[in-house]
Nucleic acid binder design. Structure first.
Lengths: 246, 246
DNA sequence: TATTGACTCTCACGTTGCGTGAGACCGTAA
DNA sequence: TTACGGTCTCACGCAACGTGAGAGTCAATA
């Protein structure tokens, strides 16, 4: 496919495709003798990934790092996308609620604090680090700090909220069996998430799960999302690690 | 409130507030003798509006035009916000569905066309909407969007089904003459349908029909119901408009 | 065959919406 | 009165393209 066709298909501009070529983010697989860019189906799949991340507010540089990472797993990435998108929708819900409240407020029906007025619009004020320190203790945070520090505020916020999303999902499943399909799928998201921040081979993942139960600080903060969640996660993580390690 | 307080409350940076002051988008109501910016509650309300529009992707210049317009109606604006946010969420739903489909696709369970792969990613550059805004102005399009966005999922599904029904009926008639009684009756239903969503004077209706043929994206999607349907509809719509316009 | 007219290419500068210091002043708590 | 954090105004930097300019390409048509 030539530039124009790709542009029409995806809704982005020709200039944008040129730009992505320039910075090496999306280099077309082929060119005609005349120098026309020719995009393959693989290029299109890659572009889809790029647009996913762009929509989520990642910088092009960050996107390049992500998709060119050899450990980049398409399937896990897609599942991460899904949870990030869901998180974004949740934020939109907050904003919609804020608007509706404001409308009511204008009708004089209720009162709003200034803080309420901005609920859902609070993107850059990032609870990630504080919460993470609370949740995992300082060492764990320091370890992943290198990676996280390289991210933009938006990316960090997205991550922190995605973490909450996974916790909530797991909390909702915690009465099921840890080796149930749903539980394993959710814990797989958690695994993918952790591997965005650091490198966790299955054994480390399993050990981390054990720590959730052994270290009461972990237990306490995890169980905020639901009584017994830490134990459930430990078990699910163990099953996951055993199935995926060799 | 001083800059820092506003920044903390809203999650935007001090620099951003300075910037908004510089460009005259949000000038604080007062200053101390030392030159410190002092933001009033009105300023905060205005900032809320600004952030609404910003989140929706408007440029700061556009936002300035909007909020400084004397005819700017806070309540209507808020209701428009709500519907635009809901529309955005709907697009997010599309994207989530696309991701889920892609995940299934990776599992080899279903196949996807290239077009499907990009559904939901065609945001502001939506050619239909842009064109419609150019031709009939913003209010008509916004109102139509608002109406559709304000519907429940079920209602939207029902609407979509009704639209398809009319298309099918028209497709069945497309070999007849565009000014035949049957054709004119069916196109009349189409006219009624459109007027349920927005306001289309006969001339706009005629123009819309022309667009079905001029813009190949329209043509393609309409002709899915039958080869030549777009052309047939344009002709029938022109006849209808001529007969019903004054 | 020549000529459109739509498409593509590569520079290269312009624009938006801030980020990021630098250097100076303000305010209050010890 | 000295420290220390908040605030001010320049002013340059940067990402992600937009927007021509000028030139080559390609298929259809006169």
């Amino acid at each position: 496919m030539k530039v124009r066709e790709v542009a029409d298909l995806t809704g982005i501009s020709v200039r944008t495709l040129h730009h992505y070529d320039e910075i090496g983010l999306l280099v077309p697989d082929g060119t005609t003798e005349a120098g026309y860019r020719l995009y393959s189906d693989d290029n299109l799949a890659m572009l889809q990934q790029i647009l996913f991340y762009r929509e989520l507010g990642f910088s092009l540089k960050a996107i390049k790092d992500i998709v060119s990472d050899p450990s980049f797993n398409r399937r896990e990435a897609l599942e991460l996308h899904r949870s990030l998108l869901i998180e974004k929708r949740r934020r939109l819900d907050d904003m919609i609620a804020t608007v509706e409240k404001t409308i009511q407020h204008h009708k004089g029906e209720i009162t709003m604090t200034n803080e309420e007025k901005f609920k859902g619009f609070d993107f850059s004020r990032n609870p990630y680090e504080e919460e993470a320190r609370r949740r995992w203790g300082n060492e764990a945070v320091d370890k992943s700090n290198a990676k996280v520090a390289g991210m933009s505020k938006d990316e960090q916020t997205a991550l922190g909220e995605a973490v909450n999303e996974i916790y909530r999902k797991l909390a909702g499943l915690r009465t099921a069996s840890p080796d149930s399909e749903q539980a394993q799928e959710a814990i797989g998201e958690w695994y993918a998430m952790l591997n965005r921040m650091g490198s966790y081979p299955p054994q480390a993942f399993k050990g981390l799960g054990q720590m959730y139960v052994d270290d009461e600080r972990f237990t306490a903060s995890i169980d905020q999302f639901g009584e017994g969640l830490a134990v459930f996660m430990r078990d699910a993580m163990a099953v996951f690690a055993d199935r995926h390690g060799q």
